[in-house]
Design a protein around this nucleic acid. Structure first.
Lengths: 242, 242
DNA sequence: CGGTCGATTGACACCTTTCAATACGGGTGG
DNA sequence: CCACCCGTATTGAAAGGTGTCAATCGACCG
């Protein structure tokens, strides 16, 4: 039985902007169902023209591109509240693939209705643009990390970002949060080799900055980790949710 | 004397979607003036909350972020038709700086009017989202280049991208186009050192793939350059213009 | 004509990749 | 119940791409 929007568990998290009653009704109308997938499932393929859009409700995943030479670039990690398929909705087709890293629950929307956002709900249309701009912002930061940071700093940066998102969503209990990704995923996100990623992770572990293993990430001192990354900790902005 | 929108020189280029008469009127109303700047001028600063938005009419520039350690990451090059300030308009403040690399002419809009796009012109609001999604797409590609390509491939990729944009805009006459950037700019865009960038550029020159010097970029065989980059040449999508 | 900025080049250090091998846990079939 | 296999994590050694340091050069400019 699909969750009703006015009962959306994500709305309880305070990182999301509360929907008005009108918006809630509008979204409920837009929602066509719910999807449960196993870990490893590909949700959207690069180049696909999916008729469906999703909002992640539970679980985690990855966005990635595959290059001509077969290399893979992970462009972002997917967390609850993330909107999936915006590019397909706006530009016609996905520019990257999306895959589930853990089992996931997703809210399913009908892409053909996307236009009605712009016609009938300027606020929701604005939120859509906000999300695209936020993703642009994140990719800019990721680019700066991959381009300008050392492997050690980059990995610290990534783990810090992930922990911050987990905390905002209430996924992190007592400095520990689930992290169902593989080391290869992180390596592909930062443009590093698997071997070097592994060795750098153990260096972070030795220095007691971060401990990732058994699908769990433990960070005792987020400030120290941020220092190691050469970044400044900023409270995440409140964001809209679809 | 400011250019009138219905006389916009960019509309003559066929990479841009034609504006309808209504949209043209709407934009003309939104436009508050024209700005002429010298090379080296900073148009927007990271963190700033500028009351003005721009569309580049002539000239080129760069978008970049500055890291805590002082390193600079160039996130994109600015060409005519690019919209500048969208992030400030949507998210409240700029997440990157924008600087002119050559002298530039810019169309100036009033940021406070941005909301009227969503309220009064769903089509224009959609185009705004389209642009944000396109920038997201580009940053994903750039991330993949920096992360997964060798220095040689990455530079070939970047020069190829630049040449393609120049051709689309009619800036490239007979395989030659103006390129007012410094080698340091390209190095900062690709996460490479200046020295290595310089040596790689001369390698491209020796192999007759690309010749960049004296603010001019010459590419005789774009296909060969794309091959060297390990990328597939795709005709650029038609895009909206603000 | 000295001074600055960008481009160029050589030598050397080192961070990161690649290659290879081992270990460990979970699933599967005999 | 136990071999066997597969995916993932881990570790060591060696090769190599890229960064850093330093010096030179040409063009432009006050």
């Amino acid at each position: 039985m699909a969750t009703k929007c006015f009962n959306c568990p994500l709305q309880r998290s305070d990182v999301f902007i509360d929907l008005t009653k009108d918006e809630m009704r509008f979204m409920q109308n837009f929602k066509v169902g719910e999807l449960e997938v196993d870990a490893g499932t590909t949700l959207l393929m690069e180049g696909s023209n999916s008729p469906q859009l999703y909002t992640a409700l539970r679980g985690m995943g990855l966005r990635y591109k595959t290059l001509e030479n077969g290399n893979r670039q992970v462009t972002n990690f997917v967390f609850p509240g993330d909107f999936i398929g915006l590019q397909a909705g706006i530009m016609g087709e996905m520019q990257h693939s999306v895959e589930a890293s853990s089992s996931m629950t997703l809210c399913v929307f009908d892409r053909s209705e996307l236009w009605s956002f712009f016609r009938n709900s300027p606020e929701r249309a604005f939120d859509l643009t906000w999300m695209a701009a936020a993703e642009e912002h994140f990719l800019g930061e990721a680019l700066a990390s991959v381009g300008q940071r050392t492997a050690f700093e980059a990995i610290a940066w990534a783990l810090c970002k992930i922990m911050l998102r987990g905390q905002g969503l209430g996924l992190a209990k007592d400095r520990v949060m689930p992290m169902p990704f593989r080391q290869q995923d992180l390596a592909d996100a930062l443009g590093l080799s698997l071997v070097h990623t592994n060795k750098t992770l153990s260096k972070l572990r030795n220095r007691q900055l971060a401990n990732w293993g058994d699908d769990m990430l433990i960070v005792n001192d987020l400030g120290a980790l941020a220092d190691a990354a050469g970044m400044t900790l900023e409270p995440p902005m409140k964001r809209p949710i679809m």
